[in-house]
């Protein structure tokens, strides 16, 4: 192998940094198409990272995961979202519950939190990708944050998918990927979920006239009482 481990670790760290940047960019993005582009970019970096790790660590099943990520998260899912937004005439800007600067600050807090949480794992790991584990968990957390702070069903879904990206990234950096059968199963679940939220968007927009989930507040306990 002509790449030393140190160089390899540097390359994966660089790609991990790019993934984290896309995460934060998604938090700050105000336009829905921009959000989808960023999501596709994140998928691309992930696929690239997986392929690099697969090549250096000589794990061939990672190439399959990488191709799967490329197909699913860079092309298919963004395409589905694109079409849905066009068809349903969804509002093109992102509505937030918490304002952007605060969200960004919480995001930074989450990264520090992830750093501490993954400390025991990093100490025990001997893999060259161990330093990227923090970023992987941070991506999961930021995805979660995005789901909580957005009001639109489409942005919630993008948050959900970003979180799934983070989980995939975690598997790659902690263990050089899960066994192939599990990776394939997870991809299948994501695909089914994609069809389900597609159907959902239609139902929600025909029933509520918009995809603002803030309108969905009929099932509150208080209202049930009085």
């Amino acid at each position: 192998m002509d790449i030393s481990l140190e160089t390899a670790a540097r390359i994966t760290s660089f790609i991990a940094a790019l993934v984290l940047i896309t995460s934060f960019a998604m938090l700050a993005q105000k336009r829905i198409y921009g959000l989808i582009h960023l999501f596709a970019w994140q998928g691309l970096f992930l696929a690239l990272n997986t392929a690099v790790v697969g090549y250096i660590a000589d794990k061939h099943h990672l190439f399959i995961s990488s191709l799967l990520t490329l197909g699913l998260k860079v092309f298919l899912l963004p395409y589905i979202l694109y079409v849905l937004i066009k068809r349903l005439n969804i509002r093109k800007d992102v509505e937030t519950i918490v304002n952007m600067p605060t969200t960004m600050l919480i995001g930074i807090g989450l990264v520090i939190f992830s750093y501490h949480l993954t400390a025991p794992v990093r100490e025990l790991s001997t893999l060259m990708t161990r330093s990227t584990l923090t970023i992987a968990l941070a991506t999961v957390m930021i995805g979660l944050l995005m789901m909580i702070t957005r009001r639109n069903a489409v942005t919630q879904i993008i948050g959900f998918l970003a979180m799934e990206n983070g989980l995939f990234f975690t598997a790659t950096s902690a263990t050089y990927g899960m066994p192939l059968v599990v990776e394939l199963g997870v991809a299948l679940d994501v695909l089914i979920a994609a069809f389900i939220f597609g159907i959902f968007f239609f139902h929600i927009s025909t029933t509520f006239d918009s995809l603002d989930v803030g309108q969905m507040a009929r099932l509150k306990e208080d209202e049930m009482n009085e």
Binding site: M147, A153, Q156, F160, A193, I196, F197, F200, H203, I204, T207, F208, V213, M216, A217, R218, L219
Partner: peptide, 14 residues
Amino acid sequence: RTPTAIEAAWKYFI
């Protein structure tokens, strides 16, 4: 497909 049913399902899903 009632509004409450869709809301419940969305909550369940997310």
